[in-house]
């Protein structure tokens, strides 16, 4: 745990070093989300909240992919990965610290997006915020676990940005980011069921209509558990592979 807290402190220190990045993280998601929200508004006023929640949840996934999935590569680029691997701390602890940091960033982005969408796009977030926060935690657990699996892939492939972008876009569409899963072609709907983001978005939309998303949260925790276990095993295998091939310092 001491290693995780030390690494988390490092991540937070880097936000202090680059304060403008924090400003950008608060503002730039709005410009990505806003066009979809305005299109929704043009068609039906009540669609705005549904689309906003879908896009906010998709942003969580995106942040985990970049923060945790590419976490090891970031340390490789910095030049410190071999120093880290030479300590008793593991790659899993490094990724765990990045996952906690990303969770905090996601909370920050979500608050900023809700305020900006309300102020600039007129979206009314009539939500039970406690229910929404619980769903946020369940979703972030599942998505962080998914990003561990992706981190194992990046550790071996190193340059995997193309796959990351493709995967995020595809997952966004399949999980009902803008339009509900029910409008997707039947042939691909089964894929949606295999993506944790689908349940995060569905759960958020349930919270918006006053329901508690019990089943979605249960599925998200189950996904999170299985993916975390798989991710940890895959990262360990990938770590052994890079120690075997001598590519620890390469990216």
């Amino acid at each position: 745990m001491r290693a995780i807290f030390s690494l988390l402190y490092k991540e937070i220190s880097y936000h202090r070093v680059y304060p403008l990045d924090l400003v950008s993280l608060a503002i730039s998601p709005f410009f990505i989300v806003a066009p979809f929200v305005f299109v929704a508004k043009a068609h039906a006023e009540n669609l705005q909240l549904s689309v906003s929640l879908g896009l906010i949840a998709w942003y969580w996934l995106s942040m985990f992919f970049w923060g945790v999935g590419y976490g090891v590569r970031d340390e490789m680029e910095e030049g410190v990965i071999e120093s880290l691997l030479a300590t008793p701390a593991s790659v899993i602890e490094l990724l765990a610290a990045k996952a906690i940091d990303t969770l905090l960033i996601n909370l920050y982005i979500t608050i900023a997006l809700v305020i900006l969408l309300w102020l600039l796009a007129g979206v009314s977030f009539h939500l039970n915020w406690i229910k929404f926060f619980l769903l946020f935690m369940a979703s972030n657990f599942a998505l962080a676990s998914l990003s561990f699996v992706y981190a194992a892939f990046v550790l071996v492939a190193r340059q995997a940005s193309f796959a990351g972008n493709l995967f995020q876009e595809a997952v966004g569409i399949l999980s009902g980011m803008t339009a509900p899963v029910s409008v997707l072609p039947k042939a691909v709907r089964w894929l949606s069921m295999l993506i944790p983001l689908t349940y995060a978005i569905e759960g958020a939309r349930k919270v918006a209509v006053g329901q508690f998303p019990y089943s979605e949260m249960a599925i998200l925790f189950a996904f999170g558990g299985v993916l975390l276990l798989s991710g940890v095993l895959l990262v360990k295998k990938a770590e052994h592979y890079v120690r075997l091939t001598g590519t620890t310092g390469e990216y």
């Binding site: 690494l7 402190y9 490092k10 220190s13 410190v80 071999e82 300590t87 008793p88 701390a89």
Partner: peptide, 20 residues
């Protein structure tokens, strides 16, 4: 480059102290 250049000397050592 095997140090964190954006952190101070003390922060670098504190971080690695935690890792050990």
């Amino acid at each position: 480059r095997s140090l964190y250049w954006k952190l101070t000397a003390q922060e670098n050592l504190q971080l690695f102290g935690g890792l050990y």
